[in-house]
Computed example of a mutant assay.
Amino acid sequence: MNSQPIGFMDSGVGGLTVAKEVITKLPNESIVYFGDEARLPYGEKSQAQIQTFATQIAHFLIQKQIKLLVVACNTATAQALPLLERELPIPVIGVIDPGSQLAIQTTKNNRIGVIATNGTVNSHAYDRELKRLDRDAAVFSLGCPRFIPMVEDGKYHSRSDQEVVSADVQPVFGHGIDTLILGCTHYPIMRSLIQRAVGDHIQLVDPGAAVCEQVVTTLKQTNLIAPAEHHATYQFFTTGNADKFIQIAEDWLQRKITATHVDVTELENK
């Protein structure tokens, strides 16, 4: 058993959708969360940039004595997961493989849509993984780059927000999909808007729940589960505005938190 925290990294608040699953299902586990809001969106960055950012954040979290790292960002998973798996002395879990497995289990007609950042779409990571799991799967991917800044600005409640979401997901309708992967961890925060846009006949797949199951499995296999009597603690760090981060995090997690600002130069100088 091990009472050290689980680390989460994301380009912003989106990874909180994954962290929330872990907090709910593993209440004895401590977490350290890092949102790199000063450098988002990752979906418009080069692979080299993303690998640099991911490595910097991973090293920051390693110094916080994490026992496992969740790359709670689809773009970082697509572009940097193999590098982190090679370089870090702890288990590393991404979001694409678990999300793909859940989608394959969910679809009835093998026609699966993916909405994600342009970076994730252009990496073809979901296409490859879904085809690996089922070569007959038909995959239709769509970049929705406006969604991340909307979530980061708290714009996921109003009628005008719904209009933007409905317009941006429209191109995926013509493919006869019955399953849609929310291929960015920001997107579940606006899940209700997306569901209304696509209709109830399309099942939304949030990789967060599947990632949590993989976290549980990995912790058990490596004997890293926290003791039942352990009192969990939650730490949050952001390169962006801490007050803004807190506002969205508290809205999503439904709990009071504190967050610490980290200057980007502190990461670059490590």
Rank of each mutant, 00 (worst) to 15 (best):
L182W: 11
Y156H: 11
F147G: 03
D136K: 15
G183N: 14
L130W: 10
I177T: 00
I177Y: 01
I189D: 13
V165I: 13
I181G: 14
R159C: 03
L130A: 11
G176T: 00
G174P: 00
H175M: 01
H157R: 07
R191D: 11
F173S: 13
D161Q: 04
Y187L: 05
D168R: 07
G183D: 15
C144V: 11
P145I: 01
P149C: 03
I177L: 02
S158G: 07
D134Y: 10
Q162V: 02
Q170P: 01
G154L: 12
Y187I: 02
L142F: 08
Y187K: 06
C184W: 00
F173C: 05
D134R: 13
H175E: 01
V151Q: 07
K155M: 06
P145M: 01
I181A: 14
V165L: 06
E163Y: 02
D178F: 00
L182D: 12
D168P: 00
G183S: 14
S166C: 03
E163D: 06
G183Y: 14
S158A: 12
D134A: 12
E129T: 15
G154W: 08
I177S: 00
Q162M: 08
E152T: 05
P171V: 01
R135N: 15
V139N: 12
R146K: 06
G183E: 15
S141L: 04
H157G: 05
C184A: 04
H157E: 10
D134Q: 12
S141V: 05
G143F: 04
D153G: 04
C144Y: 06
E152M: 06
R135K: 15
Q170G: 01
I181K: 13
I194Q: 09
R159Y: 04
V164Q: 04
H175T: 00
I148G: 02
E129A: 08
E129N: 13
L142Q: 12
L130Y: 10
S158N: 12
V165N: 08
H175G: 00
R132Y: 11
V169R: 10
R159I: 13
P149H: 04
P188V: 06
P149D: 03
H157F: 05
D161H: 03
V169L: 11
V169A: 07
P188R: 11
